[in-house]
Design a protein around this nucleic acid. Structure first.
Lengths: 346, 346
DNA sequence: CTGAAAGCGCTTACAG
DNA sequence: CTGAAAGCGCTTACAG
């Protein structure tokens, strides 16, 4: 395991604000002010301080600053599973806003493990994080029970939410998005439309399911409703796809709650020699990068992921500053029609 | 933008070690020791301290601890692009080892922007991070020039590396992996084998390219060599795929340096009505989750990603403890044969 | 505009 | 085994 090289601790100590003060011939307070509030320092002093900083190669110890200011300038982005490409663009939007405000993002990957979620929440009480953007509802509710109604709890939800805990939320209208997808399928002549949901009980899936049922009802097709449950991943799409399709009375269209599941369904259809879109139409959800490159290209619902991330971070920053925050911001989604859907065949 | 609710700062102050000491009737030093080195504290005192902690609801301020100990217990995982699913499993392996050792991972997404990389490196000098696992060679070399040869610089590379800077590295043998892929294609009867590389100059791609050329030479096929350059993403695979295939003298096999590019090539082949694997064999690299769900399922090279992440973190922890570290750890890759490759047609 | 001083919440030799 | 005290590197009222 060990080999070649030896290591040791830092050879000489890192310069501190004291070293700068000495080099500039002023107090540490002045150095600090020259950095934090340059306008409160005379031009000549500021000049000398800056030279001294360059000379000694000073970089402020942010840990010390944060301790003194009682903040960490760190925001946790808590997500269920980092391997889901859906989140990367949201993170990206968050980072843009965060960096501009001097915050950094700590990505908390729960991996569907409550203990992990708890560990990330603990960062809040141990002063290692100032706030959380919660991108999953798959965490122990006890962790946020304290936040219920409490307007200043530094937590914002994005995309996902809890049915019974009121927290600031940035998300699309999942019910409406679902209605739009089903309406579209009906307009293509489909009557037997199945849906493949995410995990049972997930509030956004419940909303989408409600949209599905409402729209089927509106068209007098509710007796044809057929619901299967997946977990958003490829494999569950494939498996549930086989189950739904290996059946004489199989559906002519399937609306999936994620693109990965939709792609799993495409594989199931191939295996059963069911042509898409000839004999089966498939709609996904999220418009991940891949949805343009699978075969056939996927019809799906696009969420403004970057914007969701930006708004979520923006709202959290407001909370952190003690400002008011909108409880619910709804951004618009839209249906992207590609090649996986078509008119129903006779 | 603003609405409904008002917020405010923490209503009452968070308990500190002083509060615990008071409640337990001992000094703060004893409380600190009861937490850090319980064996140095008498049973009865430890008991009282623990009760006091529970009573006042104390959680140590880690920021203060870190300042005092001059460490952050944070490791940066610097990667080129978080949307690439290749990295998630590596991160996961890193996190397992890191958490066990009391460290947390800060994911640094460079988004191919040198300024971002620099910002993450700066965390090192500002005491916000203790070390870096570098998963990209796409950063300004100036950032690590100081580390050249310096055995204790807290930086470990994983997967990627620099040709001219010697740093501890955990990776597969890219040359050999490439040889294996090409050997396999030759064994299927292919003679015109093209390769689609990642960004020009990327050292791992250069290694793979060398393997490609060496193997073609070994089989007397070097005059058939055909190299195109992509950027690892879907789109470049599609575009370069079209360029390579829309051609009478087109190759009968393409070895791609990423699965996403391979999937882009599959789309290009579809568009040109070229059957895979009937008229074209395609090999990818990385074995991302998707490679089992595209059509046809992708033959690809699998890297032990979780293990790479674990070893990288392990090595970094050694460095941090001032211990020796192997300069180069080579883990084995293997070829996974699926449906995108077949014998060449007459 | 500037400095002396206190303090953020911990940890850790040092002395007992 | 325990405590008093110093100190980690900053920031910020306070006084001038």
């Amino acid at each position: 395991m060990f080999n070649t090289q030896v290591t040791g601790k830092h050879p000489h100590s890192v310069p501190t604000i004291k070293d700068v003060a000495k080099a500039a011939g002023c107090s540490t307070a002045t150095v600090s002010r020259a950095l934090a509030t340059p306008e409160k320092v005379s031009d000549t002093t500021r000049e000398r301080v800056n030279q001294a900083i360059a000379q000694v190669g000073y970089a402020p110890n942010i840990a010390a600053r944060n301790l003194r200011r009682a903040e960490s300038k760190t925001i946790v982005a808590l997500l269920p599973d980092i391997s889901n490409p859906f989140f990367s663009e949201i993170i990206s939007g968050m980072e843009d806003v965060a960096h501009q405000a001097g915050y950094q993002i700590l990505i908390g990957d729960c991996e569907h493990d409550p203990a992990r979620a708890e560990a990330y929440f603990r960062l809040l009480s141990t002063n290692q994080a100032d706030g959380i953007v919660l991108l999953t509802s798959e965490i122990p509710k006890a962790l946020i029970k304290q936040a219920d109604g409490q307007a200043d709890f530094p937590l914002v939800m994005a995309c996902e939410f809890f049915s019974d805990i009121d927290l600031p939320l940035i998300a699309i209208d999942n019910h409406q998005a679902s209605c739009q997808a089903i309406d579209y399928l009906v307009s293509l002549g489909h009557q037997r439309i199945a849906t493949l949901t995410g995990p049972a009980g997930n509030p956004i899936c419940l909303e989408r399911l409600r949209g599905y049922r409402d729209t089927l009802s509106a068209h007098g097709l509710i007796d044809q409703a057929c619901v299967a449950e997946g977990d958003f991943g490829f494999r569950s799409g494939f498996q549930q796809g086989l189950a739904l399709l290996d059946n004489a009375q199989r559906p002519t269209a399937i609306f999936c709650h994620s693109d990965e599941m939709a792609i799993g369904v495409l594989k199931a259809a191939r295996q059963l020699n069911i042509a898409v879109p000839g004999q089966l139409s498939v709609v996904g959800f999220d418009n991940i990068g891949l949805s343009e490159y699978c075969d056939p290209e996927l019809t799906t619902i696009s969420q403004p992921r970057n914007e969701i991330g930006q708004q979520a971070m923006q709202s959290l920053l407001h909370l952190l500053r003690g400002e008011r925050v909108i409880r619910r911001q709804t951004l618009s989604s839209h249906l992207i029609v590609r090649k996986s859907t078509g008119r129903v065949n006779a």
